[in-house]
Simulated assay, not measured.
Amino acid sequence: MDRIKLLFLVTALLLAGARADQPADQLLGRWQFPAGGSSVDIYRQAGLYFARVAQVDQAGKQNFGLVKDSLLIRNLHYDGQLWAGGRLMHPKTGIALRVEVEMLQPDAINVTVYKGFKFLNRQFIMTRQQTNKSLPAAN
């Protein structure tokens, strides 16, 4: 009987932890830069959020030095309102910048990038890119 109670308690704690992550996981997915040609995949690893370059257009490569599959943002954490504490290594200049991400709508995020003082920042809005899900094969 005690084993059943323990198993129930462990299961309840695991489910509660999974539910607690759901608001933070709204950030997961593919997000397009404002110009629309380049994008990043945002994923979670060990409770932190990372952005890896998924697609690169010519402008992204030329103007910003984006390289497919490179890690662009690392170590964002969710504080209940926004994802903060992350670092972006600018691919072209090599300068490390601080990053904060705020969910505006389910399909739009505001990204704030700054070095030093937050009031000297650059902001841009990224939109969620719908991925094509393959349809099941017809028999």
Rank of each mutant, 00 (worst) to 15 (best):
R128D: 07
A96D: 12
G86W: 00
D21Y: 08
F119S: 03
Y78L: 03
L6Q: 11
R98P: 02
G94D: 02
S70I: 05
Q130V: 15
I4V: 14
A24C: 05
Q81M: 09
K115P: 00
G116P: 01
K92H: 09
L72T: 06
S38R: 07
P91K: 07
Q81V: 12
I42H: 07
L88N: 02
N139S: 15
P136M: 15
Y49A: 04
M1F: 09
T127D: 02
V40H: 09
H77I: 04
A16V: 11
A51Y: 01
T112D: 02
F124S: 02
S70M: 09
A54H: 10
A12S: 11
F50L: 03
E102D: 02
Q123Y: 03
I73K: 04
I73R: 01
R98Y: 10
R3L: 14
D57K: 05
L7T: 12
L88W: 01
Y49H: 06
Q123P: 02
W83V: 00
P106G: 08
K61P: 00
G36H: 12
M126V: 05
A24E: 05
T11F: 03
M89Y: 05
V111G: 00
Q55E: 13
T93S: 14
A138M: 12
I95H: 05
I95T: 13
A138Q: 13
L15M: 08
V111T: 06
E102C: 03
Q81N: 09
F64T: 01
F117Y: 08
K92F: 12
Q26N: 14
N132Q: 15
L76C: 04
Q26E: 10
S38F: 10
D2V: 13
V53R: 01
Q32C: 14
